[in-house]
Amino acid sequence: MSSFEPRWYRKELHRSSLAPFAVRFRETDLWVAVPPRQNTPALRQCCEEAATALWEELHAYILKDPVFLHSLTPHTPHFGAPPVALKMAAAAAKADVGPMAAVAGAFAEEVAQQLMQKFKVQDIIVENGGDIYLAATQPRRIAIWAGSSPLSGKLALEIEPAQSPLSLCTSSATVGPSLSLGQADAVTILAKNGAVADAYATAVGNQVRSAADIEPALAYADAQEDILGCVIVIGDRIGAIGQVRLSPL
């Protein structure tokens, strides 16, 4: 089992008026921010229970279907698989990657939606290892962290309320434990569906091995109907398509 990596960026880059808290259970490490008046013990308990239930359901399923955990290509779940596994598998099939490529985005979305439904939360950010699901009633700025790239921490995605709820998922070959077959410092995908955004972040990231790959990788992303926007950072080069508005951080 992997240990938690320091999430220094959560404190360093958080500038909103929302009130944050963390939820950790096994490999799940969530950072959740909601309006201060809604950051209640009941909401935090609900968040913990939702994250725990998702992990336990998926873990129990993987014990029965270990291929689901290890496959780097799409995998059809067995009968009786939990809803989160079905969402992950469906997203992975679209992006032509393994289902676990969609796990962080799927968890972030599911937890956020449960809190939005049960507590009528209209402003929320759920971040899971760099993968984000958010709803907003005011503009938000999401920083792009790209490891050792000179562009890392220098740019932010401008998100308007009309774009939300929205998933922003990032794959990196140089940051974090997630597997990437490419060399990109950051590939961020914007999509309505968390599992889909996460799966496509991996798929696009796998295609970027040098700056020369930015243009064809963006063309691939632009051709996918589920992708609303894409940002690619490798070294000192950056490219973007779709509903992407960048500003200095």
Score class of each variant (00 low, 15 high):
Arg7Ser: 06
Trp8Val: 02
Trp8Ala: 01
Arg10Val: 09
Arg10Phe: 00
Leu18Trp: 03
Leu18Thr: 07
Ala19Arg: 12
Phe21Lys: 09
Val23Gly: 04
Phe25Tyr: 14
Arg26Pro: 04
Arg26Gly: 05
Thr28Tyr: 11
Asp29Gln: 10
Leu30Val: 08
Trp31Gln: 07
Ala33Lys: 15
Pro36Glu: 07
Arg37Thr: 07
Arg37Phe: 11
Ala42Ser: 12
Leu43Cys: 05
Gln45Met: 08
Cys46Asn: 05
Ala51Ile: 01
Ala53Met: 11
Leu54Gln: 08
Leu54Asp: 05
Trp55Lys: 10
Lys64Cys: 05
Phe68Lys: 09
Ser71Ala: 11
Leu72Pro: 13
Thr73His: 13
His78Tyr: 03
His78Arg: 15
Ala81Val: 12
Ala85Phe: 03
Lys87Pro: 02
Ala89Glu: 02
Ala90Glu: 10
Ala91Asn: 03
Ala92Thr: 11
Ala92Asn: 10
Ala93Leu: 11
Ala93Thr: 09
Ala95Thr: 08
Ala95Ile: 07
Ala95His: 12
Asp96Ser: 09
Val97Glu: 03
Gly98Leu: 12
Val103Phe: 12
Gln113Thr: 11
Gln114Arg: 15
Gln114Tyr: 12
Gln117His: 13
Gln117Glu: 07
Gln117Asn: 04
Lys118Gln: 13
Phe119Gln: 10
Lys120Thr: 11
Gln122Val: 09
Asp131Val: 14
Asp131Arg: 11
Asp131Ser: 01
Tyr133Ile: 12
Ala135Lys: 14
Thr137Ala: 04
Pro139Thr: 02
Pro139Ser: 01
Trp145Ser: 08
Ser148Asp: 09
Pro165Thr: 11
Leu166Val: 08
Ala173Phe: 01
Ala173Leu: 04
Thr174Lys: 07
Gly176Phe: 06
Ser178Gly: 05
Leu181Gly: 05
Leu181Gln: 08
Gln183Met: 04
Gln183Arg: 12
Asp185Ser: 01
Val187Ala: 00
Thr188Ala: 02
Ile189Asp: 00
Gly194Glu: 09
Ala195Leu: 13
Thr202Asn: 00
Ala203Trp: 10
Gln207Cys: 05
Val208Lys: 00
Asp213His: 04
Glu215Trp: 10
Asp222Ile: 01
Gly229Phe: 15
Val231Met: 00
Ile232Asp: 00
Ile232Asn: 01
Gly239Ser: 07
Ala240Val: 12
Ile241Met: 13
Gln243Trp: 04
Val244Ala: 02
Val244Lys: 04
Pro248Trp: 15
